[in-house]
Amino acid sequence: MAIKVHGNPHSPAAQRVIVCLEEKGLEYDTVLIDLRSREQKKEPFISINPFGQVPGFEDGDLKLYESRAITKYIAHVYADKGTPLLLEGPKKLGTLYLWLEVEVQKFDASAQKIAYEILVKPVKGMTTDEAAVEQLIVQLSDVLDVYEARLAESKYLTGDSFTLADLHHLPVINNLYKTKVKSLFDARPHFSAWCADILARPAWKKALEAKY
């Protein structure tokens, strides 16, 4: 049975799953979930994700949700396919797990909220909270200083190899490139070079072109 991704091309979380599948060179089918009509809150989708958020994921009779859980599953189960996205050995795994948490707890905690304020709210006819954006930018700047120091030491977050820790950043970084936040990236040469590197990956370009 084919792998299926139930999502939307505008969803960063769905993009995260798609790029992981592309890095692994796996075949998959996409199922469009119409977010405007709130299809994600209705059956049959909520039988996959009871929280009513994209993406939903099927691999045979297995159903998963939460994009980062899905990518971890893909990386482990299909470890012998495509790009190795994990690391071997307890110390290397420790570093990988660390940066996976940093992405969620530190980077995304600020970056995704900024993207929502600047990019999503206007589309929904809502007003961007500029004061909140400025506060979030200060928070993100502190986080990026830590990234800059790390990336001055290694090409990727966990060392010399591209892993899930890098991959998980792609959708939000791509979105923020379209905003004034890019100046924060440009001001940090190692972080900026890392962004350019991962955004240029063929798998990411394919993910952006995924058809639903």
Score class of each variant (00 low, 15 high):
197 D>M: 01
52 G>A: 08
167 L>I: 07
19 V>W: 09
178 K>R: 14
15 Q>C: 07
132 A>N: 11
35 L>R: 08
194 W>F: 06
71 T>N: 04
155 K>H: 10
64 L>Q: 07
129 D>G: 08
116 Y>P: 05
43 E>L: 15
86 L>R: 14
55 P>I: 02
108 D>P: 01
49 N>T: 07
159 G>S: 12
150 R>A: 01
68 R>A: 03
72 K>M: 09
211 K>P: 05
176 L>S: 01
147 Y>E: 00
200 A>T: 03
183 S>W: 01
209 E>C: 09
210 A>R: 14
92 K>E: 11
10 H>L: 11
21 L>D: 05
72 K>Q: 12
93 L>I: 13
151 L>V: 03
148 E>T: 05
192 S>T: 09
6 H>P: 04
183 S>H: 05
138 V>F: 01
114 I>D: 00
169 H>R: 00
60 G>R: 06
139 Q>I: 02
117 E>G: 06
49 N>A: 10
136 L>N: 05
26 L>I: 04
47 S>Y: 09
28 Y>G: 05
184 L>G: 01
11 S>T: 02
180 K>P: 07
43 E>Y: 07
38 R>V: 09
16 R>M: 04
126 M>H: 10
169 H>W: 00
109 A>D: 13
106 K>V: 00
8 N>F: 03
144 L>P: 02
39 E>R: 12
92 K>Q: 13
81 K>R: 14
193 A>N: 10
15 Q>N: 08
24 K>G: 08
199 L>M: 14
115 A>Q: 04
25 G>D: 07
78 Y>P: 03
106 K>Y: 00
118 I>P: 01
117 E>V: 06
70 I>W: 06
34 D>K: 12
72 K>F: 01
66 E>Y: 08
12 P>Q: 07
168 H>E: 08
123 V>C: 04
31 V>K: 15
96 L>F: 05
167 L>M: 14
88 E>V: 14
161 S>F: 04
79 A>M: 09
104 V>F: 03
15 Q>E: 09
62 L>K: 09
179 T>L: 05
152 A>W: 03
96 L>N: 03
133 V>D: 09
13 A>G: 02
31 V>G: 05
32 L>C: 07
198 I>G: 00
154 S>K: 14
35 L>Q: 07
28 Y>W: 07
165 A>C: 04
122 P>G: 11
20 C>T: 14
98 L>H: 12
80 D>V: 08
8 N>A: 10
31 V>E: 14
166 D>R: 00
171 P>Q: 06
131 A>G: 11
13 A>D: 05
164 L>H: 01
44 P>S: 05
107 F>T: 00
8 N>H: 13
188 R>N: 02
2 A>S: 15
7 G>T: 09
194 W>Q: 02
81 K>T: 08
13 A>Q: 06
51 F>L: 12
7 G>P: 03
58 E>M: 10
86 L>P: 02
40 Q>N: 15
18 I>P: 03
45 F>R: 06
133 V>N: 11
208 L>T: 07
126 M>K: 15
74 I>G: 00
172 V>E: 00
149 A>V: 13
79 A>H: 12
